[in-house]
Amino acid sequence: MNDSQINQVLSPTADVKHQPLVLSYGQGLGNFLSLYVGRTILFLITCTSVLSVLLIFFFIIRESLPFLQKFNLTEFLTNTGWYPQAEKPQFGALALIVGSFYVTAAALLFAVPTGILAAVFLSDIVSFKIQTFVKPVIELLAAIPSVAYGFFAIMVLAPWMQRKLGFTTGVNALNASFVLAVMALPTIVSVAQDSISAVGRELREASYGLGATRMETVFKVVIPAAHSGIIAAIILGMMRAIGETMVVWMASGNASQIPHPWWDLSQSIRTMTATIAGDMGETAKGSDHYRSLFTIGLLLLIMTLCLNLLSEYFLTQAAKKSGIRK
């Protein structure tokens, strides 16, 4: 059969020139519009998030650039004196950076073991019924606004610490890191639990089959197999802690100093986020102090983005391992 014969079969009145019966997408005008113009519009709208990220970077850099040109970056990063309002202002952010890492590290010290144990509990130890009860509790912990945590820290925890533990002040690094730990817990638990649950049943069964107890299975098989996801969980928890503002502003005491001796958690400290939040209200727009706060913000932004990329790397690793496509 040649082409004309086929046409004869497909459309009995084939003398008239007409559209083919099956249109490929994009041939009709309406379809063309919906395919290309509509998609372009949708694409542009979707790009809002990209635009937002770019704008955030652009504006934070724009506000902090004059400061970086005027002052020495090395001094900013290594000097511990933060006296922006003094006659001869000093912008040494080291104490603030150390403060941020200090509370974050202390918070992770509480939160990581607790979080991983809770994740193991949810995935390996209890029945589905108890899981459905415990998971919402952890989600509620994540839902409580940070200002409520800060309120708890300053109104309930701080007086208690002063009274019962005999600290000179209740608003100190211990208070802030404890509350931060509670805030970071839900993130750590849920991400770690996902990755621990994703470890296949076969691995566990093989381990049990070799005579290992549950504890041995968890520590020697499950956790090593899920380590990428657990690392990602820890990083995400760290991001939550390092970027938190209200709790550290309210509970850390806001004294710009590096604790001495370094393990003394009962001293007041100050973090980068709390400095931005606390000082911004008192600065004149465009002053050195104002720009220095943006510089701290830039530093914080870069740090969290690096952590974010790192966590994504580990999450993809975990996903690859367990064979689940994200």
Binding site: L55, G243, A277, L305, S311
Partner: peptide, 25 residues
């Protein structure tokens, strides 16, 4: 992939940075 990366980054930006950005922009 880039869009997704940006969405993830946006989710990881500390809330105080949004405050700074809102002020500046």
């Amino acid at each position: 992939k880039i869009i997704r990366m940006c969405i993830n980054s946006l989710a990881g930006v500390p809330s105080i940075i949004f405050g700074l950005f809102g002020l500046a922009f």
